[in-house]
Computed example of a mutant assay.
Amino acid sequence: MSIQQSGNAPLYRINKFSVPTESRDAFLDLMARTHAVLRRQDGVAADRILEQQSGPGVFNFVAVIEFTGPEVVDTIVSAVAAFDRQAGIDRQQAMASLGVKADMGLYRSLDI
């Protein structure tokens, strides 16, 4: 079997979160504000916030952001950071205070 990266495939940011029930509303408020910023950025092709409905697992929320390619990532990350500064948001502190655990990474689709 040959596995290769797709040449012109988009890049995906997949963020998985374990969110305590009591922090759900505050967490989703932060996610809504963040994704509103993302949706205004050139280079964001699509985004989704998913909530687990059944099955075992550590993570009960997943955010998937589709970038048009790796060249747009730094600009989009900078836009979110600028929003955070303007809004007075410290993401690491916010996640810690909400008891949220996260696993985040960039992914590329493979031709299999």
Rank of each mutant, 00 (worst) to 15 (best):
G99S: 02
G69T: 05
N60K: 02
Q5K: 11
D103K: 02
D84A: 15
I112H: 14
D47G: 07
Q5I: 10
A79H: 06
Q53D: 02
I112P: 07
L30H: 14
A82D: 09
M104C: 10
Y12T: 05
A102V: 10
E66D: 00
V37A: 11
R33C: 08
E66T: 12
S6F: 07
N60L: 04
V37Q: 12
T21D: 10
D111I: 12
R48E: 07
I112W: 15
F59S: 01
G69H: 08
Q92A: 09
A81N: 13
A46T: 01
I112R: 13
P70K: 08
F17E: 03
R40M: 15
I89F: 05
A82R: 13
E71I: 05
A82N: 07
A82L: 04
F67Y: 15
A81K: 15
L98V: 01
S54P: 00
R39H: 15
R39D: 15
F67Q: 01
A45D: 08
Q53L: 06
F67C: 00
L50M: 12
L98D: 02
S6W: 09
Q93D: 10
I14V: 15
D84F: 13
D103R: 06
Y107L: 06
A87H: 12
G7R: 04
G99P: 01
Q93S: 12
A46W: 05
I76S: 05
F17A: 09
S97D: 11
S109H: 13
G105K: 03
Q53P: 00
V19G: 11
T75E: 14
L38Q: 08
M95T: 01
L28S: 05
Y107K: 02
G105T: 04
F59E: 00
R108S: 11
A79T: 07
G55F: 02
V37T: 12
I49Q: 08
A26E: 14
A102I: 09
Q53T: 03
E22F: 07
G55M: 03
L38K: 09
I3V: 14
V44F: 04
L110N: 06
A32L: 11
D42V: 10
S109F: 08
S2W: 13
D42C: 10
N60V: 01
D74Q: 14
R40K: 15
V58A: 08
I49H: 08
D103Q: 10
A82W: 04
A94I: 00
Q4L: 13
E51C: 06
M95K: 00
A102G: 09
G99C: 02
A79W: 03
A81T: 12
V77C: 07
A96G: 00
T68Q: 04
R40G: 13
Q5S: 09
S18A: 14
I65F: 03
F27N: 11
F17H: 12
G88V: 07
N8H: 09
I112D: 09
G99V: 02
V72G: 00
M104N: 06
S78Q: 15
